[in-house]
Structures are given as C-alpha cells and as structure tokens.
C-alpha cells in the first residue's frame, strides 16, 4: 500500500489528468476554429493518421519478441487472418472477432 497522504495522492492523480488534458487540448487551443489553420498543420492533419495507425499497431506488439518464446507466430498468423477476413468481407466486427478468437486458440492450445 502507498505511503503517500491522501492529499499527495490526489495531487499525483491530478498531475496525470493535467498532463493528459494538456496533450489532448493543446492543438485545439493553438489552432482555434476562428482563424484558418496554417497549411503545414492542415497537411500534418491529413498525413499523420496513417502513420499513427501504423505506430499504434507496433505499440500493441511492442512486447512481442521474435527471437524467443513463440517467436511472435501467434500474432503473425492472427494478423494475417484479420487482414484476409477484412479484405474478403470488409466487416469490421467479423475481422476483429475472427483474429481475436484465432489468437486465443493459438496461445491457449497450440503454442502452450
């Protein structure tokens, strides 16, 4: 259990809230909707998402080690299944559910 006082805990949590909200609100404060957004920032707004989605996938997989354990094979197979299902049916829920069930079966029964 923690050694902090309640006030110290509240301040610590408040700092986490403050840091989070600073990052979420900052772009909207800097580029208000009254003034036109600079072209460079408009460009970033269009160019960033694809790069960010790639980054989020890598973020989810950051603890996968291809050299040891299951060598990331359950992840690889399941992601390929997600891609295959999605290109085939283009049904978001089906692709996600299919890949997740595949992954759970693989790590619970195949790569034990």
């Amino acid at each position: 259990m923690t050694s902090m006082t309640l006030t110290q805990q509240i301040i610590t949590i408040a700092m986490c809230v403050l840091g989070t909200m600073a990052m979420r609100f900052l772009p909207f404060f800097v580029f208000s909707s009254k003034k036109p957004t600079p072209p460079y920032v408009q460009y970033l707004g269009k160019a960033l998402p694809s790069a960010v989605f790639a980054m989020l996938i890598v973020y989810c997989l950051k603890n996968v080690d291809p050299m040891t354990g299951t060598h990331g094979l359950p992840e690889l197979f399941s992601i390929l299944l997600v891609i295959g299902l999605h290109i085939w049916k283009r049904q978001m829920l089906l692709s996600i559910a299919g890949g997740t069930v595949c992954y759970m079966l693989l790590i619970q029964f195949v790569f034990v």
């Binding site: 989020l56 989810c60 399941s78 992601i79 891609i83 999605h86 290109i87 978001m92 996600i96 997740t100």
Partner: peptide, 17 residues
Amino acid sequence: QGLEFVMTAMFVVIFLE
C-alpha cells in the same frame, strides 16, 4: 488469456481501412 489481442486486431482493421 489472449483476449487483449482484440485491441491489436482493431488497430489492424483501422489501419487497413
């Protein structure tokens, strides 16, 4: 065990879209 993969799968789908 392994249910957390649902987030990975979702980001893969969003990336693909």
